[in-house]
Computed example of a mutant assay.
Amino acid sequence: MELLFQIILNGLIWGSIYALIAIGLSLIWGVMDIVNFAHGDFLVVGMYVAYSVFAATQLDPLIAAPIAGIVLFVVGMLTYYLIIRRVEGASLLIQIVATFAVGLFLKNLMQFIFKTDYLLIKDEQQSFFSGSVTLFGADINSAQLATAVISIIVAGIFFVFVYNTRTGRSMLAVSENPYAAKLMGINITKINVIAWGLGAAIVGISGALLSKFYYIFPTAGAHFGLLSFIIVAMGGFKSMWGALVAGITVGVVEALASFASNSSLKVAFVFLVYIVVVLIRPKGFLGK
C-alpha cells in the first residue's frame, strides 16, 4: 500500500509540473488561437537561465525561477512583436512555420552559447531542498516535492490573476470572441502581448524548476513540448483548467506505467489514455 501511495505521489508531483508547462501553452492557444511550436524551446531557455544564474552566483534554481520568468516574459513579448504580430490573420500553416522557426532559432542559439553538453546541477551543489523527506511512509525527493509545491503556487497565482483582475478578464473575453472584445474597448494588441509574455514566463519558470533535477541540453524541450500538446488536447483546447487536470492525469499515468511495465513505455501509455479520452469525449476533459 505504501508503495502504491509513493507511486501515485510521484505521479502527482510530476503532474503538477506538466500542468504548469501546459497552462502556458493553453494560454497562448486560447487567447490568440495560435499553436506555439516554440513552447518547448522556451522551457529550455528557462532551464539555461536558471543554470547560468546558479553558475554565476550559486543561487538555487528554485530561488532563480522568478528571474527565468522575467527573462522569458521579455522573450515572449519580443516574439509577439517581431514575429507573431506579422502573421496574425495568416493561414494556419504560416503561423505554424513561424513559431517552428522561432523554436529552431532558440534551440540553435542555446547550442551556440552553451554547446551540446549535458549540464546538471548536482545534489551536493544545491543549497536548498537536497536529500529526501518521508511523507506517510513514502520517501520523496525534496527537490521534486518543493518543485511541485512551487508549481501549484505559481498556477494558483496565475488563475487568481486571470479570473480576478481586469486584465485577466480581458484575456478571457478575447479568447471567447476577439471581435466582440474589441467592440467593448479592449486593446487586443496589448492583451496579445501580455498573453505571450505570461505564457512564456510560466514555461520559463517551469524550466527553471526542472533544472533542479533534470539534465539541461538544447533539445530537452522536445519531450516536454510534445507532452504539453497532448495535455492541452486531452484537457480541452482553450481550457486552462482542463490543462491543469490533464497535466496531473498524465503525471499519474506515467508513474503507474513506469511501475507496471518498462519505464521507456510510459509515453506510449500516455498516448493510449489520450486516445481513449478523445474517443469518449472528443473535446477533452473540459473542452466546450
Rank of each mutant, 00 (worst) to 15 (best):
I17W: 00
Y18S: 02
Y18T: 00
A19S: 10
A19D: 03
L20S: 04
I21Y: 02
I21N: 00
I21M: 06
I21H: 00
A22R: 08
A22N: 05
I23M: 07
I23L: 07
I23T: 08
I23K: 02
I23E: 01
G24T: 08
I28M: 09
W29G: 02
W29M: 09
G30P: 00
G30F: 12
V31Y: 00
V31F: 04
M32V: 10
D33L: 09
V35R: 04
N36Q: 05
N36T: 10
F37V: 10
F37L: 14
H39T: 09
H39L: 10
H39V: 07
G40M: 09
G40S: 11
G40R: 10
D41G: 09
D41R: 06
F42S: 05
F42W: 13
V45W: 08
G46D: 10
G46F: 11
M47A: 15
M47R: 11
M47K: 12
V49Y: 07
V49F: 11
V49Q: 07
V49C: 09
A50K: 08
Y51H: 12
Y51R: 10
Y51N: 06
Y51P: 02
F54H: 11
A55E: 14
A56K: 13
A56C: 03
A56Q: 14
T57L: 15
Q58M: 12
Q58R: 15
L59S: 08
L59E: 01
L59N: 05
L59Q: 07
D60A: 12
D60Q: 11
D60T: 14
D60I: 15
D60K: 14
D60R: 13
P61S: 15
L62N: 08
L62M: 13
A64Q: 08
A64W: 08
A65M: 15
A65C: 11
A65S: 15
P66L: 12
P66A: 13
I67Q: 00
A68S: 15
A68I: 11
G69R: 09
G69I: 09
G69H: 08
I70M: 11
V71R: 03
L72R: 12
L72K: 06
F73D: 00
F73K: 01
